[in-house]
Design a protein around this nucleic acid. Structure first.
Lengths: 139, 139
DNA sequence: TTAATTTAGATTGTATGCAATTAAATTTTA
DNA sequence: TAAAATTTAATTGCATACAATCTAAATTAA
């Protein structure tokens, strides 16, 4: 009977997803703390390392966060010296976020984090790819 | 080169996981709002519907949340009349959370939510099971 | 059996998340 | 071109998350 109960936690797909995501973020904490980054700041730094300069809106598209989350976080990152925030000359509505020298330098300290994270999971490379495919298809 | 960059967002496994989890919770919102539940309250109600009466600690084990999150949320759920909170007679340290009649009644309104959620994803049943297996293995 | 330890929740402080609203700048349209 | 609509961030309000700390109760050990 229990396998048929649609409201049993163990029969949900959402819960392992929700739970696994939190657990992964929690495990990043150990590696990110020495760099002074939170997980959300870390994925934001990834797009900054790649693009150097982006509007708040564009960052939001890339990391799936809105200004309500990004604005206070980007202010903290500016206070930490990792990015600069300047209004665009061309369009005053846009706020351009640019990486600083200090932000660039942080990259070296982050380089080995993906490998460290990878080694603390029991997934094979193939399973990891499969998981990524399924997650992409889910949404 | 970009496929080899360990710090590119698109090369991460964590990001689709983090993003998909948030998206799924967001989609629940539409269905849960009429019931006056948040997603976290919903998974808590699932364990209450199943177990009827549990300590805060046991709830935390089942839904992977600590008292810092649960205490304020359970107070709100009590204020909403869904559960009662009473100290255990046997061990005053324990706080026993019990489902109320109103909480039981809410179950009927929640019964079709899993099906509604299932139908707004593009995963086959087999893929969903595969995803659950991979998520379990990840942690 | 009383002091030390452990346990269970509650509290505090920090950092998200996100919907809804606001405000300013820009673009579109009548 | 002046008003209306749209766009971009910022702000507000509410609800998590979780580490760290605190408090009271129960258990263990000296």
């Amino acid at each position: 009977m229990t396998e048929l109960d649609p409201l049993k936690l163990e029969n949900q797909l959402c819960f392992p997803l929700y739970s696994a995501a939190k657990e992964v973020v929690r495990r990043y904490r150990t590696f990110l703390e020495p760099l002074g980054l939170t997980y959300t700041q870390y994925i934001t730094m990834m797009v900054m390392w790649e693009h150097k300069s982006l509007s708040v809106g564009r960052i939001g598209e890339l990391v799936n966060l809105d200004s309500g989350t990004l604005t206070p976080m980007l202010k903290k990152m500016e206070a930490a010296g990792l990015v600069k925030r300047c209004r665009s000359k061309a369009d005053e509505r846009e706020l351009i976020v640019s990486i600083t020298g200090k932000g660039e330098q942080l990259r070296a300290q982050a380089l080995d984090i993906p490998a460290k994270m990878g080694s603390c999971t029991s997934l094979t490379m193939e399973e990891a790819l499969q998981l990524r495919t399924l997650l992409a298809k889910l949404i």
